[in-house]
């Protein structure tokens, strides 16, 4: 249609070129009609479209025919719909259909298989649990023994400590032997002083001379005084 109109339009154009007139006839007709999104043309703005009247006989007949047609179409659609549903329900093309006995048998087989699996797993579990029980038992036993030994050692140490303390307690200064102890201490003064020479020899005693000889008497006297002080 579009091409035909272009041809129609171009033909007078050619003749127009031949006759040397303007090329208005080469105007491109791109659309057969105004695009829908353009507003009403100015020339059509006030045009009132005519409403055609149907005659009564036409109206009645068309109504009747339409009613019949629509009822028929609805009926066909209903038939096809029902047919599809029926086919989906009865056909076995896309799935396997079992009889109730087969279904029951399949279910029983599934049950048996499941039971067998359960039994295997149960046996494995038994063994594992037994092993675990024994391991636990051994561990507990070991820990108990270790605890016993530890306890005994502790008691031994405590006893040892008590014995040592008792041993020591004999030499404690009590109210009874206090005087004796004082006497003894006075009688045996302890001299912690010492001197040391270049050779690293230690000379115990405040007045001890190098070589180990006793200090002179005065020195000893002085030493005694210092000690008593």
């Amino acid at each position: 249609m579009l091409r035909a109109s272009c041809q129609l339009l171009s033909q007078p154009g050619v003749s127009a070129v031949k006759t040397g007139s303007t090329n208005f006839a080469l105007e491109f007709v791109r659309w057969r009609r105004k695009p829908r999104w353009l507003p009403v043309a100015k020339s059509k703005k006030f045009r009132v479209p005519e409403r055609k009247k149907q005659t009564e006989e036409e109206r009645v007949e068309l109504l009747r025919l339409h009613n019949i047609y629509k009822t028929q179409l609805r009926s066909v659609r209903q038939y096809l719909r029902e047919e599809t549903v029926r086919q989906q329900e009865t056909s076995t093309i896309d799935h396997i259909v079992f009889t109730p006995e087969q279904e029951e048998a399949a279910f029983q087989r599934c049950l048996e298989e499941n039971a067998a699996w359960n039994a295997t797993i149960a046996a494995e579990r038994e063994v594992r649990l037994k092993r675990e029980r024994e391991e636990k038992k051994a561990y507990v036993q070991e820990r108990l023994e270790a605890a016993l030994i530890r306890e005994e050692e502790r008691k031994e140490q405590a006893n040892e400590k008590v014995r040592r303390e008792k041993e020591l307690a004999k030499t404690f200064i009590s109210r009874e032997n206090l005087d004796v102890a004082i006497e003894t201490a006075l009688a045996n003064p302890v001299d912690y002083n010492f001197s040391i020479d270049l050779g690293g020899n230690i000379y115990r005693g405040r007045g001890t001379l190098p070589g180990g000889s006793e200090p002179p008497a005065e020195a000893q006297q002085q030493q005694k005084q210092a000690a008593s002080n």
């Binding site: 006989e57 009645v60 007949e61 009747r64 019949i68 009822t71 028929q72």
Partner: peptide
């Protein structure tokens, strides 16, 4: 009403 596929008898008016 006749709903057959054939063109049934039109009413008197038409």
């Amino acid at each position: 009403v006749q709903l057959g596929m054939s063109l049934s008898k039109p009413p008197e008016v038409s």
